[in-house]
Design a protein around this nucleic acid. Structure first.
Lengths: 199, 199
DNA sequence: TGTACATCAGTGAACGCGCGTTCACTGATGTAC
DNA sequence: TGTACATCAGTGAACGCGCGTTCACTGATGTAC
């Protein structure tokens, strides 16, 4: 059972992550300030550093949450008894939906960098698996000729292609798919990839 | 004919852009400091602000150069009398090559943001056209059914997909195509898109 | 249960640093006659 | 061509600000007896 100190600490940590998440969602990664977060969480500036090593680590915690939510969305998006092609299409649309609804948090997943020489902890690195895990099963049905390693590689490429279209549409400035056509264009892209990659 | 003042000014401006370009190429956008650039260019810190409004505008000038070089590379990559499919494949590989050889400068094209409320000048916006211009002609042959607007949109998507794969491979951290497989995977992607988009 | 001491979390003013930008001054270039 | 004045570019020390992080202090929670 938890001591009261642990309870308080966990509670504060949660409030800090909540606050950081809300701030990133509202103003992007660069809008995240220690003073704002601690004020929102209802604690003093210094308290942040009792609970978390760094502002950067706090961002890591927010990104973990975002990855978990995204993973759940992708998992829920896979339709029962669908063809591999349909699964791929559903995953891509779910990804687009998540990015549309959580643009800044989603964007933070790819924008955040630790300072030079600081390693990303392995547990966090592993969490990024959700981005491609769901792709592998349908892809392996479309491409039974590929071995496990090649499948993983191809899944990474398929993800990157879809991600690129979404990213330029949502956060790009001069080029890329117009936002209004995003779903349609992603559908066409996935259609092409699941056809082309099949042969 | 130019007055000596104009000559000096133009010369200093060129040295500053040279220096900024070298600094970005070596240390990325975030490694660009006014003091370094002016020291490299052989002038005082304040001189920068006689020649250019802002550090941000200096970056714009560097990006303009990069876009011009990239545009030339893409133009030169189109083979004589090739099929549309071959043209698309050649453009994509040329893009990969440019990104591999100029990773930080290329990356700066997409990372740099002006502060809130500052508009990108129209001349610079227009320069980004080189990213998709060459795609339109071969695409229009593959898809004669599409009108000009849809062609532009689809070209933006094709570019974004390839760009996404390159970007995650070169600057991503946890997911995306392994760098060693980049050319091969981009080739497969473009093959799929020029097949799939054809139907 | 109660008391005395130890530990550790919470506080927020102060520190420190990086760095873009300014500005009063000097010296070179241009102009008028 | 030469001289006197005006203009503007070059200089770099100083300004200013944002902001992450620390630290001496206070007060709450935990432990020993």
């Amino acid at each position: 059972m938890k001591t009261k100190r642990e309870e308080n600490r966990d509670d504060l940590k949660k409030r800090l992550v909540d606050a950081a998440e809300a701030r990133i969602a509202a103003g992007g990664l660069s809008g995240l300030k220690a003073r704002d977060v601690t004020a929102d969480a209802g604690c003093a500036l210094g308290a942040l550093y009792n609970v978390v090593e760094d502002l950067d680590r706090l961002i890591l915690l927010v990104n973990s949450r975002t990855l978990a939510r995204l993973g759940a969305v992708l998992q829920a998006a896979v339709p029962e008894g669908a063809t591999p092609k349909e699964v791929m299409a559903a995953l891509a649309q779910a990804y687009v939906g998540f990015a549309l609804e959580n643009t800044r948090l989603w964007s933070a997943l790819f924008r955040h960098r630790l300072p030079d020489g600081v390693e990303v902890p392995e547990w966090h690195r592993a969490e990024h698996g959700v981005l491609i895990e769901q792709i592998i099963a349908p892809l392996s049905l479309l491409r039974p000729d590929l071995d496990a390693q090649m499948l993983r590689q191809r899944a990474g490429t398929v993800f990157a292609a879809v991600h690129g279209v979404v990213q330029l549409a949502l956060t790009g400035r001069f080029v890329g798919t117009p936002r209004a056509a995003l779903r349609q264009e992603v559908a066409a892209l996935v259609d092409a990839m699941t056809r082309g990659l099949q042969g």
